[in-house]
Design a binder for these strands. Sequence first.
DNA 1: CTGTTAGCGCATTCAT
DNA 2: ATGAATGCGCTAACAG
Lengths: 390, 390
Amino acid sequence: MIQITFGSASEKRGATPRAASRGASKAGRITDLDALDKIGNASINFSTVPQSGRSSLADIARLAGVSLATASRAMSNAYGVAPSTRARVLRIAEELDYVVSPEASRLARGAVGRVALVVPHVDRWFFGAVVSGLEAELSDAGMDVLLYHVGDADDRRDFFHRLPARRKVDAVVVVAFGVAEAEQRRLERMGVLIVAAGGQNAVYPSVHIDDGEAGRQAMDHLLFLGHRRIGMIAAVDPDEADRTGTTGRADAYFAALRDAGLPVDAGLAVTIDWSGVAAADAMATLLSRRHPPTAVYCHSDELALGAVRTIRRAGLRVPEDISVIGIDDHPLAELTDLTTVAQPARDQGVRTAHLLLALLRGQPTGRHVVVPTRLVIRRSTAPPTPAREG
Amino acid sequence: MIQITFGSASEKRGATPRAASRGASKAGRITDLDALDKIGNASINFSTVPQSGRSSLADIARLAGVSLATASRAMSNAYGVAPSTRARVLRIAEELDYVVSPEASRLARGAVGRVALVVPHVDRWFFGAVVSGLEAELSDAGMDVLLYHVGDADDRRDFFHRLPARRKVDAVVVVAFGVAEAEQRRLERMGVLIVAAGGQNAVYPSVHIDDGEAGRQAMDHLLFLGHRRIGMIAAVDPDEADRTGTTGRADAYFAALRDAGLPVDAGLAVTIDWSGVAAADAMATLLSRRHPPTAVYCHSDELALGAVRTIRRAGLRVPEDISVIGIDDHPLAELTDLTTVAQPARDQGVRTAHLLLALLRGQPTGRHVVVPTRLVIRRSTAPPTPAREG
DNA sequence: CTGTTAGCGCATTCAT
DNA sequence: ATGAATGCGCTAACAG
């Protein structure tokens, strides 16, 4: 027979039941779900649908003819209960569609099994991808994922003031943003594990790319192609001014120029916030120089696309007249033939989750994971045209 | 009357404490946080950081010289407590950095104050934007937001099998995807409110655009420009075959053609999944026709960008040789000068949250909200070139 | 307005 | 292996 149970308790019980259900569901999804529906109740009418979890452990215990304690053990502990008893309890629970009350369970146990994700922009690709990776691994580990979106400075201030996740989670993941010192202290008052995903953050365990290296790969590619007058469209998060930010991408620009023995033209580096349209404007600025660059290094693909738009509108071609390179390997970079330095986004989320879980379990682990980036050459970069080099 | 409130008690505490802290924060964010940190403890050393919530309501009550009940009331109820008493309790709580235990509170209260977001792709712009809107409104309302990512068919099956959110939430929001009938039955067993965001879903209260109308706007624009041979790159979610899907965008294509008295060339409509690279391939297919279209209507901006890439690689120009239109108004559509039918993404999330909250409070409300779309003309569409009309 | 008293549903000692 | 008894921290009657 199909032997499935749901809810938090069942999640800890080991693989047996789920394996069984998978085995029994070869027939396909729909059929499978239908079969499940038939367990315990045939009627599907909405008003008749038994609301899961309307019964308590006590009910189960009574029906199974065991004590509350035994029922509890049967539901959660791997041993300490006779196999036959356990089976009986589980069956009853199944029939009643019983689910343990997470509130009660957690209250009694003390643990919470939840983690908070603090994200500045869920709607930007990179953040979404990181969150996606985090969610997958964390929920696989049986944890619930709470989402906190701190878009603007107000959200942010409010979050750190109120710490709404306080006492609700075992850990918090700050996704790709720097945390100011004062904010750090607030965070620490939560008394929970803190890790950073996708942002260089020395104070917390973290996984991130090496921004300096990524920038260097972009710049070196441009230099290798023969460009000597390279512009930069740099971005900073307006809220990050005083934080442990990632200036690595900007530093790389100057370092690469210096190492190549090239002069730095202050007029060729413009700093904006992370906005494509701002980048478009910035590109216009660069084109207004007496000697515009033959190539532009942008801190992200989105910025790069903004630059490309302006270049095209000016009647120039990419890459024949001006080369453009970004960082990220945004999905649309492939569609827009943009050369870029790829960073694994989802993977950073996945790894952060692993780091987090290891830390939570007290397993030994490194505090920082650096994931590699790599140059992806497409059609937005090429050697400079002699005519324009002058 | 129904008198429901959500969130942990401390969140409802009224404006007094927060107002006070805000009042003291005129000096700026950092200083402000510093000030907060100083309340109750001066030492910041990590090992000395008082873990918030290590004290219980009982402690507060004792220190404030009141009973547990009064302390509880002071923390959560708006009235029934003498202002002076309440102030005292609140102050003590503040000093001890006390936070109510959500588990205990919810266990005793019965309510949960949480909602689950079920999302197929957090890393795609539209979904991220909807989630962003949902999160903002829901957390403003004091609700916690649980995220469930059901990427592929396996995730999906697993979610509906296990219903991991069972008993953990007051409501679930399915973000932009159809729910098969069998899945509906599973969902309903959760016995909670279900609403749909950003997807046409007749069975649940929902907010969405009119896909047929959106498609019609795109097609009509193309027709108005004079195009007679229009291709379509249609997309369907591979997992959505048997669900209450949105075929509206595809239907609009045929309806528009019919209304314009134009013949339908089966070879000009190709259906793929929601992938830009697949769209690029599809465009190649269209270009391989004996009479390629002079304009292409794509079900999303991402698909449109894929089409544009192929067109350009073929040495043709957009829009001179072939016009391309999408749907969404993805942020990058602006940067890539793509003409499109804009749909409000974040706003759909916001409105869904409002709908959800109203429903939860038992307030009267319509079951379905349709948000408008509008044509955004950029530079990827133009009248057909006579030479190519042949 | 405030204090007393029961639970909320479950996980754990202890016993047996 | 199982049962009885406590307690997790808080809220909601119910008195006073």
